[in-house]
Design a protein around this nucleic acid. Structure first.
Lengths: 342, 342
DNA sequence: GCAAAAATGAGGTACGTTAATCATACGATG
DNA sequence: CATCGTATGATTAACGTACCTCATTTTTGC
């Protein structure tokens, strides 16, 4: 009827509660044979530890720390809001969350913060990683001190981070190409690219995926001018205006960095029948409005609320020494048009 | 530091533990003034009941029951699989889930099943509703007996169900039009519709949303022939073949019922350059393959795993007399291309 | 075969809450 | 003033687990 308890396990294994406890919590001083008998009893009974009761008893707290880039990037500020929303209710799951913002793209600053963490004050850390050796080393350090580490939004491959919570950016680029190629299918032309900075790994990956698919599947769309807008809306606007004026054969725009407001302003200056199809990244207040106004056609998005949830669940699982459920916790590349906005 | 307990509340309110318990659990025999003092103390302390400890103490079990249509509909079978996956691990959250399948579109059968439920054996019910008065009455009955009710996938408006877990089908239809309109933008023509049965509320809503957007925003695409395929792949294939042969001006196909395999077979018979853009519903094994083969262009999807999760969380919250978090638990209309498949 | 060491058992307390019993204090009523 | 009903307090045993101490048994090494 109800789930078996350690009492049942003890009875079936023919040992005392103490011994079951010792086995269950990996304490020393149990003969191997006894361990096997207990394990066997757990298996036959289908015993699963009651985590709620265990956490209650040991007054377990999961102390998690999020490191996010500071600055005005809308997506990051939204992400921070999501984390703070979770902070407010995390107590329900005996979880304490703290947020620290560090200057963006400043690897030494982040590394210094990470070095300052103490294993008996923090159980797990989520970082929006900058791809730098200093961070890799800092992560290795954290792991050595027994602190769980996941990367969030931006990954740090070949580091010792245990998990990455975010989208596959190559896939995101492929999806953008798949959309734009179809949007422009019966109208050959050129597609302009708007990058933030090609120094950021995400953007390189997005571009890679985009080119792969556009070249292979939509040969009548060429890749036109590429703007490096440095995530600055004014720069983006000005350069994009110039390009659009010079080249009337631009059928589409793919913007995969920040600076969406600049794209929107440049495009909305054109008469509707000359407007290219526009695909950008991240659903924010601004890109949402542009979708509704018909200035953008599609937005490629990652669900920040879900990313935060998954990061928390993953860190909790890792802190308990479990391996997180990768498939179920996957973050997908979402596509929004004006008609399926939340 | 750590969360306040009922002990703290008692101390601050200047009452005993017993009184706090009486207030907290709505028992009788507490003067109004005392109740207010306790409530005030809870507010100042920011007390939140430790649900895990409470459930442990009262040996609370959430007994939930899912009613799903039987039959070969891939989406429904997938949904059932998701429910069964949750069943297997639900014990961790002191939740017991059962699944009952009932013949599809058979309102009396479902109503009879619902009537048979006993309030002291079930706390909450999730039903894939057929739009019928018999079901509305049965739902009213369940609610009167204190059983929580949510509708899943297909809603039952103006019934006493407390929540609907599923997508907005009008929005789904709008999204399909928004995609197809853009896919066919530079090539005027007609879009063929493939329905399952217009007797099902979902399909009516999808068509409604589709027509709204296509008429308003894509005037160079007309709505062509409509097939009522009764969710039978063979019927769909045959009729669609005929239509495609007769009318070379078909630029797109929107299929919003089951029978995707029929659509795929009919379309893949055409030479690639004559193929219309195809948008269908529900990501299954088959539609996935068709996407990968380039036979379908996009799939409108609802995340069945998430729907099941949300239904469970919602029913648990309702069983505790809480109101579920609507915004966070929203099910969105998802868009899949071959490039952002999970 | 004996001492030392290792393995196991027995029992208690705690975690935060529920739920019950029993005792007591308080007011109002007659 | 005695009585009764209501409000409140005090205490206790659960729930399933963790973790501690102390006693007892078994094994090991010599």
């Amino acid at each position: 009827m109800s789930r078996p308890t350690i009492h049942d396990v003890a009875r079936v294994a023919g040992v005392s509660l103490s011994t079951v406890d010792r086995v269950l919590n990996g304490r020393v001083g149990v003969r191997e044979g006894t361990q096997l008998r207990v394990a066997e009893a757990m298996r036959t009974l289908g015993y699963e530890r009651n985590v709620a009761a265990a956490n209650l008893s040991r007054r377990r707290q999961y102390r998690l720390r999020f490191f996010l880039p500071s600055g005005s990037n809308s997506f990051m500020r939204g992400l921070e809001d999501r984390v703070r929303e979770r902070m407010a209710v995390a107590g329900r799951d005996s979880t304490v969350i703290e947020v620290t913002t560090v200057p963006p793209f400043d690897a030494p600053a982040l590394a210094a913060e990470l070095r300052g963490l103490c294993a008996d004050a923090v159980d797990g850390v989520a970082i929006v990683a900058t791809d730098a050796t200093a961070i890799r080393v800092a992560v290795q350090d954290l792991r050595a001190r027994g602190i769980a580490v996941v990367t969030l939004v931006s990954d740090l491959p070949s580091s010792e981070r245990q998990h990455f919570v975010g989208i596959d950016n190559v896939q995101a680029g492929r999806t953008a190409a798949s959309l734009l190629g179809r949007f422009c299918r019966w109208r050959p032309g050129r597609i302009a690219l708007v990058a933030g900075s090609m120094l950021v790994r995400d953007h390189v990956e997005r571009r890679l995926g985009f080119e792969q698919v556009l070249r292979a599947e939509f040969p009548d769309q060429a890749i036109g001018a590429t703007i490096e807008g440095l995530d600055d809306q004014d720069i983006v606007e000005e350069r994009l205006r110039t390009i659009l004026a010079e080249d009337p054969g631009i059928t589409g725009i793919y913007s995969f960095g920040a600076g969406n407001r600049g794209v929107a302003r440049a495009v909305s200056g054109l008469s509707p029948d000359r407007r290219p199809a526009v695909v950008v990244h991240e659903l924010t207040h601004y890109s949402r409005d542009a979708l509704l106004d018909g200035v953008f056609d599609a937005v490629i998005h990652q669900d920040d609320a879900r990313e935060v949830d998954v990061a928390i669940r993953t860190l909790r699982a890792l802190a308990d020494g479990e391996s997180p459920d990768g498939a179920a916790e996957r973050i997908g590349v979402e596509v929004f048009l004006r008609d399926n906005l939340p």
